[in-house]
Design a protein around this nucleic acid. Structure first.
Lengths: 343, 343
DNA sequence: CTGAAAGCGCTTACAG
DNA sequence: CTGAAAGCGCTTACAG
């Protein structure tokens, strides 16, 4: 813990330090920035003065002279969402460890808010932006990609342009889930989705279909909204070929389905099995505990931050790449597996 | 959506605009900042030039001349925590609406990280800081409060100094919870806590004790950790006067208790009733749904942001105040209440 | 209503 | 190894 006699009214400037150390401003600047060619003796005097005055370089002045701002922007649809909040926390941490500040913004999934945030960030300026695009088709985003601010997308790519992106194995993950259901002997596996316009969800659907086609089983995609869930699912389960298993392709659909099945008195996994994509801690507390595909949220945050920071250092000669992170099947009970009650 | 022919390599400066508009730099500055005394005709020309050049004021330059940075810092223990992530989202939103940037940082509950973050923020500088203190007793924090950066604490006060703080009715909320349990006829109500060093938790315990003292019932405080939960609770329920109801004073203890009771085959509410402090969406999905005291997380974020922004505007003549937000009893089934299954 | 001057605190060349 | 000069892009007084 630093001790300070009294909080100085005016913050010390580089010149103050120079005067106190009896050197020129440049020597202070060089010392602080770890430049070579500073006599060890001089450096000591400067450092002493810095400590004594509690000097901290003025950020604005540095930026004004063309230095990096050491700030990255992160834009997610919703900071309160469990998945994005984990990603955000990881980004914040990785940024801090690298001496970077994280400017966090939420778009609420609104492309116009997203655009305004990006405009602000690029002009502020930040050194780079981490983005979970609200709309993959956005023309504006395409233009940003070819702009001068390094950008890395998280979870979702931008259509039609080559960007650095960090995603998860959506397609393969869906296949793993569906294969597991097939392994249980289920024949009528339906895929339930909300927000089916999102890239990752589309990929999960593709994985689902691919897998069933392979197994020669019939496919059935059910698009849900919070409003029509009751009606759609009750119809689905009243139909002659009602499904014996469900693959819910994202968190919101998993929750919606669980709620609705309960009110319809359809028991999981007795009446229908269930595997969801995207894991949430609370799923272990549900009855039955929900089997899911877990996404590496922390890794997503750390990896994308690292990538962006690299890109910032090596601009503009960098080529873009897609990084795909593996997912894990978390076997619990909603899929039909039994599980011992262990502590 | 703004259209740009080509992304200009160099950003336009105020002087560029002045030249394009055929006026002096000051006139541009005044126009942009909405000062009076600019001829409407001139203003029009300036604005046209601004638009045409895609001019955006340079933030660093403004800050360097002593303007507000229009940035506030928010430090929470954990961005991934459901409660703090909701608060953070609200802060971010309220800040954006006011034209402010939110610099989000997580302390991980570590006072030394917290201190480093605050130092960085104050020197950056930010115009103000929103803080969920990791350690209420910190000497460092006390010093910060008397510093020149406006500070508002969220959820937890700083001991021994007068700060602006926005909290919730911890004490009264606990009383409401315990009174509800008493209303059910329970006589042996234990209070289970984790992290009992935190101010809000202490207040909840105080409310619990106050209420039971009033009702002339015996008190019993149980301090839990994830490691000893199994042992402590099994002992508790093996004892002759085992509790017939539990008040879990925070989210982590609620979850830990629910998990442990399950593995001990103790049914809620049949064998023991339960009310938790701090509500989480998922509690509605548990069996039984958990009755809780809900904290107004969004309001906490919005109110504290508003307060901080006010303080920034009116510094330094402001007096400090504690704002206490009301909580709500969310009656579900773990307390012993029956509930119709409604959609 | 408008503008030229000076300065915010730093850093990048340029000279020693 | 060290320093004086100029400038980053804006704004605050100060003059008209």
């Amino acid at each position: 813990m630093r001790v300070r006699k009294s909080l100085p009214k005016k913050k010390a400037t580089l010149e103050d330090v120079a005067r106190a150390a009896g050197v020129g401003p440049m020597t202070v600047s060089r010392t602080i920035n770890g430049h070579p060619y500073v006599a060890t003796e001089t450096a000591k005097r400067v450092l002493a003065a810095v400590r004594q005055l509690g000097y901290r370089p003025n950020h604005a002045a540095r930026v004004l002279t063309g230095q990096l701002s050491k700030t990255i922007g992160l834009i997610v649809p919703d900071l309160a969402d469990s998945f994005f909040s984990i990603v955000s926390h990881a980004v914040q941490e990785a940024a801090r460890e690298a001496g970077y500040i994280a400017w966090l913004a939420a778009s609420n999934g609104d492309p116009s808010i997203e655009e305004a945030q990006i405009e602000e960030m690029t002009h502020h300026p930040v050194d780079g932006i981490l983005l979970v695009p609200a709309n993959s088709q956005s023309k504006y985003l395409k233009a940003v990609v070819s702009g001068s601010t390094p950008l890395v997308t998280i979870d979702r790519p931008i259509d039609g342009v080559l960007t650095d992106s960090v995603e998860v194995e959506n397609r393969a993950g869906a296949r793993i889930a569906v294969e597991h259901l097939i392994g249980h002997g289920y024949k009528k596996i339906a895929c339930v989705v909300m927000n089916s316009h999102l890239q990752p969800v589309k990929q999960r659907i593709a994985g689902y279909e691919e897998c069933l086609r392979h197994a020669n089983l019939s496919r059935r995609k059910v698009v849900l909204s919070d409003q029509n869930a009751q009606e759609v699912l009750s119809k689905l389960f009243a139909s002659p070929d009602r499904p014996d298993a469900l693959f819910t392709a994202n968190n919101s659909s998993t929750i919606c389905v669980i709620k609705t099945l309960r009110s319809l008195k359809i028991k999981v996994p007795r009446d229908v099995a269930l595997i969801g994509f995207d894991d949430v801690d609370f799923y272990t507390l549900l009855n039955p505990p929900v089997t899911t595909i877990r996404q590496p949220a922390v890794e997503l945050g750390r990896t994308s931050t690292r990538l962006l920071l690299q890109k910032i250092k090596s601009m503009p000669s960098t080529s873009s790449a897609r990084t795909v992170l593996p997912v894990t099947l978390m076997i619990r009970e909603s899929c039909g597996c039994k599980q011992e009650v262990t502590t």
